[in-house]
Simulated assay, not measured.
Amino acid sequence: MSRASFFLALCLLAGCASPAPQFLGASRHKVRLDGIDFVVFLKGDRAEVVRMGYLRRAERGRVPPLLIRAAEQVSGCKVTGSAGGLYRSPSLPGDTGEARFQLDC
């Protein structure tokens, strides 16, 4: 693959979200809340939510409740907390780009 082809492929992939390995085979849903795009992956009683796009640091404070709202809106279930075990998120607490939740359906 030439450098130009590699760069083009990288640019195309930069705008898409893919699930964590634990969520392979999950259903994929898009939702827009308060002007922010999210992709929600649902698998059983768990959800992975990925925020799309760039936000400045000052804009990120409003995102954590939106991550929960996205999971609940798409799944129709209640978020009961962070996903645990194999589905636990490797992200640092307060990450506004990705979150994994346990659902009560």
Rank of each mutant, 00 (worst) to 15 (best):
P64V: 12
G85N: 03
L86I: 12
D45E: 09
G53W: 03
G76W: 04
R32P: 01
L103A: 04
A26N: 05
Q22F: 08
R60W: 02
C16G: 13
P65S: 11
L24K: 14
L24A: 12
K43D: 02
L8M: 10
V74M: 04
V63C: 01
R3G: 12
P93C: 05
R57V: 11
L67Q: 08
G85M: 04
Q102G: 14
A4H: 09
F7H: 11
Y87M: 09
C77E: 06
R3N: 12
A70P: 03
R28F: 00
S75C: 03
L13D: 10
D104T: 06
V49E: 00
Q73W: 12
L103I: 02
G85E: 02
M52H: 09
E48D: 11
R100C: 00
P21A: 10
L92G: 10
G61C: 06
L13W: 09
A58N: 15
V49C: 05
E59N: 07
G15D: 04
A26D: 08
R60A: 12
V39A: 05
F7Q: 14
A26L: 08
G94E: 07
V31S: 08
L10P: 00
L103W: 03
D45W: 01
L66Q: 11
L33P: 02
F101T: 01
K30P: 06
L55G: 05
R51I: 00
V49L: 08
A99H: 01
D95Q: 04
Q73A: 15
R57Y: 13
G35A: 07
H29Q: 12
D34L: 08
D37F: 02
S27P: 02
P65G: 07
V40D: 00
L8G: 06
G97K: 11
L10W: 10
D95T: 08
L67K: 03
L13H: 08
R46Q: 08
G97T: 14
G76S: 06
T96Y: 04
A17V: 09
Y54G: 10
E72R: 01
R32T: 15
G15R: 00
H29E: 13
A99V: 04
M1R: 15
D34S: 14
A47K: 04
G76D: 07
R32A: 15
E59Q: 13
A17L: 10
A17E: 08
V50D: 04
E98A: 14
S75G: 02
E98C: 06
S5N: 14
G15W: 07
L12K: 03
A14C: 13
G85L: 02
R56E: 12
L24T: 11
S5Q: 15
